[in-house]
Amino acid sequence: MLQNEPKAPYVRNRDSAFTVMMDVVVALLPLYFMAFYFYGLRALMLGLASVAAAVISDLACVLLEGKRPYPRDISSVVTGMILPLMMSAATPYYVVVSASVFAIVLVKHVFGGVGQSAFNPAAAGFAFAAACWPSQVFSYPAPFSSPAPFGAITEGLASGPAWSLFQGGVPTNDILDLLLGKFLGPMGLTNILVLATCLFYLLFRGAIGWQAPAAFFGIMVVAMMLFPRIPESGPMSLVYESTAGMWIFGGIFMLNEPGTLPKRSSSRIAYGALAAIFTILFQRFGRVEQTFAFALLLTNVFGFTFDRYSERLLRRLRRVYLATRTKLSEKKSAQRA
């Protein structure tokens, strides 16, 4: 008998929950660097406050549940890092902290903690902040205006191109500024080039699968090109929508959250497509300028259903395939005889 018998999963994958989460954290760091470049120390401090609130509330919930804290679980750090990037750099600290506490306590832990949550915690936290304090979350300071790192900021705030798109007008920003992210917008997700780099990094590291983002971005790009909601040509509409909106960031970091994403490839494609359809519908008929978080929350409900139905569908297809194959082989053998 072996003295040191190996434990149950004999074939282990190199990737664990920790490495995947760490990849996401690494991919989020350049966005924080860009936020620091545009808005100075306040961006970093907002991120720090959000992460601290998320980690402390996560620890408190785990202890309340009577479990032992697991230091390699850094999903709350990811949630805390994603949240302030979607908000204005002038957002008060209490907004960021309460959004993060809401996301962890009432969205993640009420449904059973890591990997069990029915809704994406970051999207729910953002939706909570957007519903409670729309004026603070959606009014942005100008880039390079160096807002004070602490205290409330009330002057020099304005709405960005997302608001003019929401009103049906064409933004007046320079195209180069839009592509480089130098315009009034959420502090971490204006630079589309950095976001694209993050997407490729995560895809090549294997932290996210290609199915859901491919379906999501495919449908979004086609819809933006063919049916622009502003009086502009298709490609220009795509540039405006993709730079001003939140959906590129969301499609990379929030759509692929492993807890809410379906497990099968086919259902992931359907999930991404549904998220795109909901995002477009919310853009046309919604009442908020950044609609992705709300659309994602609605899509989250269908994640489990897609998995179940795709399993049933594949089983049925396999049955039909096997039946036809046996029939064909019987025919062949009859012909030979």
């Binding site: 209490y94 309460s98 909570f128 519903a131 409670c132 304090w133």
Partner: peptide, 10 residues
């Protein structure tokens, strides 16, 4: 500190 969303159904 006020949470105006608490007045809604959600």
């Amino acid at each position: 500190v006020k949470f105006p969303a608490m007045a809604y159904a959600f």
